[in-house]
């Protein structure tokens, strides 16, 4: 095998290959790798940025939606409570009004009854007093004269008229 027998070329092979590798390494590192690596990195960064952006947007949308839902829910709740409150309030008011009305009605009833009572009492009193007066007047007349029927009737009418007149005078 010449690779083992041709010892005299080893020195040049080793020297030149190592040197060439060194130069290639330097040149690649200096000129060839940076643009390609940069492109790779920038693309990766861009993709990652895009994904991050999308993720962020999604997250934002989610938060927004959540907030909205929460707000909606709270608004719903609020409306519910308001309706409930209004309901109970109106019920209360209704009851109160009913009660008041009932009380008023009862009061009015009472009042009316009392008034009626008093007016009746008064009337009765008055009637009694007029009846008394009438009786007295008619009896007076009866006693004064013994009169015939015609006369009696006339006299009675007279006295009634008198009483009415008196009553009218009193009421007026």
């Amino acid at each position: 095998m010449p690779q083992f027998e041709q010892v005299e070329v080893f020195s040049s092979l080793i020297f030149w290959s190592l040197l060439s590798f060194g130069i290639l390494f330097f040149l690649l590192k200096r000129y060839a790798f940076p643009p390609i690596l940069e492109a790779l990195e920038s693309r990766e960064k861009k993709i990652r940025g895009d994904i991050d952006g999308a993720e962020k947007l999604r997250e934002e949308a989610r938060v927004l939606k959540e907030n909205l839902e929460q707000e909606l829910k709270s608004a719903h709740d609020k409306a519910k409570t308001i309706v409930q409150m209004a309901n109970s309030e109106s019920k209360k008011i209704q009851e109160k009004t009913l009660e008041e009305t009932q009380a008023k009605v009862r009061q009015m009833q009472n009042d009316v009854e009392r008034e009626m009572e008093t007016s009746r009492n008064k009337l009765l009193g008055e009637i009694r007093s007029y009846t008394a007066a009438l009786t007295i007047a008619s009896t007076e007349k009866f006693l004064k004269k013994a009169l015939d029927d015609k006369e009696k009737k006339r006299l009675a009418e007279e006295s009634i008229e008198e009483v009415i007149k008196e009553m009218q005078q009193r009421t007026n």
């Binding site: 070329v9 040049s12 030149w16 130069i23 040149l27 690649l28 000129y31 643009p35 390609i36 940069e38």
Partner: peptide, 29 residues
């Protein structure tokens, strides 16, 4: 340190590869 066929072939290969790399990264990536 004589230059022989092996070394010439290696140089040609390296030059080709380096040229390709420069071509690939020509637009600044």
């Amino acid at each position: 340190l004589s230059i022989n066929k092996a070394i010439l072939a290696m140089w040609i290969g390296c030059a080709l590869v380096f040229g390709l790399f420069m071509l690939a990264g020509k637009k600044g990536g």
